[in-house]
Design a protein around this nucleic acid. Structure first.
Length: 275
DNA sequence: CTAAGTACCTGTCCGC
DNA sequence: TGCGGACAGGTACTTA
């Protein structure tokens, strides 16, 4: 479900609700979603600790606990974190419940159960390879035009697949990859290494813009996504390519097409994004 | 080493 | 109305 802007929106929506809260109980209803350590260890590492700070890296959400440990979430396709004042849980796909201060609760819900949750000490973060091997993320200094140019230059894959590779760029997913390519005017089937300096420049700017806009609008909601308060995103109203197959391009009027690239649905405008 | 294909899950939607 | 198949915002594993 969530890409960088959605995870960031969740982080912001939860921050002022749960920072400082004591995890008074952890109820694991679906053990296989806990990837490390085992369930008793996970409960022991969370119960009795306070949540100090909420951080994010790419699509990972990290709660920093009072002992310096981390509670780490990757929501994959359908994971959600919902805060509830009353502590009453009414979600049909509840997988984990964190009781806070013996009154409120934070519910981890996940329809498809693909999400991954960890409780790690600071020196164990390397266990999450997707986190430790993640490339720089948009809107940071490390994600420079030079970095993008250099990284693109030795990749023999299509640009769409490149954008989804978290080792290359952290945080882009299917929606924002399609949107970035549209804004940059680059066809998704182009080979990564074939981009000109001008195209690389445009792509760099487009990636930063779509991520910035996505965050500013609270993320993109098509079906499952909502923030920690159950609020939907607003960015779906402003998409140019994603989920717009068969509709006229908002720039030129040509019909948006959908193809499959690297096994992922891919949307583009045949006029604005020439091969 | 890289790149592509498949598995992991449940729910929804579409065509027959 | 029911059923089979494709598909869904992602990544880890296997295969070539």
């Amino acid at each position: 479900m969530p890409e960088l802007p959605e995870v960031e929106s969740i982080r912001r929506s939860l921050e002022n609700k749960i920072c400082g809260c004591l995890i008074s109980d952890t109820e694991v209803r679906l053990p296989r979603q806990i990837k490390w350590p085992d369930v008793p260890g996970f409960v022991a590492r969370t119960v009795g600790h306070r949540i100090i700070r909420l951080a994010r890296r790419g699509k990972y959400l990290l709660f920093v606990l009072d002992d310096g440990g981390y509670l780490v979430f990757h929501l994959r396709m359908t994971g959600r974190l919902i805060y509830t004042d009353t502590g009453i849980v009414q979600d049909a796909h509840t997988r984990i419940i964190f009781r806070l201060d013996h009154s409120t609760a934070l519910v981890y819900s996940d329809t498809r159960t693909l999400g991954a949750i960890y409780a790690l000490h600071a020196d164990e973060l390397w266990r999450i390879r997707g986190l430790s091997e993640m490339g720089p993320e948009p809107l940071t200094e490390a994600f420079s035009v030079e970095y993008l140019q250099q990284t693109l230059s030795n990749k023999k894959t299509k640009i769409k697949s490149f954008l989804l590779n978290q080792k290359a760029i952290g945080g882009l997913g299917n929606i924002y990859a399609d949107e970035a390519l549209f804004l940059a005017g680059i066809h998704p089937l182009r080979l990564a290494a074939s981009l000109s300096a001008d195209e690389t420049n445009r792509l760099h700017g487009a990636i930063n813009q779509v991520i910035h806009d996505g965050i500013a609008e609270g993320g993109t909601t098509f079906r499952d996504y909502c923030d920690g308060n159950g609020q939907k995103g607003r960015h779906q109203e402003h998409l140019f390519a994603y989920h717009r197959e068969g509709k006229p391009c908002r720039k030129c009027g040509e019909i948006i097409q959908k193809i499959v690239v690297g096994g992922r649905g891919t949307h583009f405008c045949p006029h604005c994004q020439k091969i």
